[in-house]
Amino acid sequence: MIRLETLAGFSFFAGLDEAELKSLSIIANRVSFRRGDVIFREDDPAVALYFILDGWVDIMINVGARGSHRELVTTLTSGEIFGWSAVVEPYVYTASAICASPVEAVSFKGVDLLALFEIDPRLCCAVVKKVCQVIARRLRATRLQMVSLGVTG
């Protein structure tokens, strides 16, 4: 459980009323990491979704023959989420998350977010919709990167 005020003010939670923020605060957990901590690895079971309060998190994916090394795809900071596979089938992380600095974050267990559907279906739908928008935005950003590099087939 965290304080409601921790989430309020971040644009990710925009459009949610106080009761809905309260419901999310009840299932939220405050977590702290040190620089270099591996929050999760690609292909781990996706247990939790994370919301960054402060700090920088590197998102990396395995590349090379048999995933021989990791490459950085993006770095996320305050106000951003990662680990959405906790609420998206098949509930396996699709990238690794490693702290580039000390990190303060809020974590939500995937099972708790999905169980919200029984208590408050509209809130659950709203959260999944917001997650979908984040994924879509990251997809657009990655495609723009490709275009700006003048990628040729």
């Binding site: 795809v73 959405w84 609420v87 994924i135």
Partner: peptide, 20 residues
Amino acid sequence: MQKACQVASARLRATRVQLL
């Protein structure tokens, strides 16, 4: 919406691999 997330996530991964 959950299914759309799944498709978008797979597409994001494929695009990132392609970019790298």
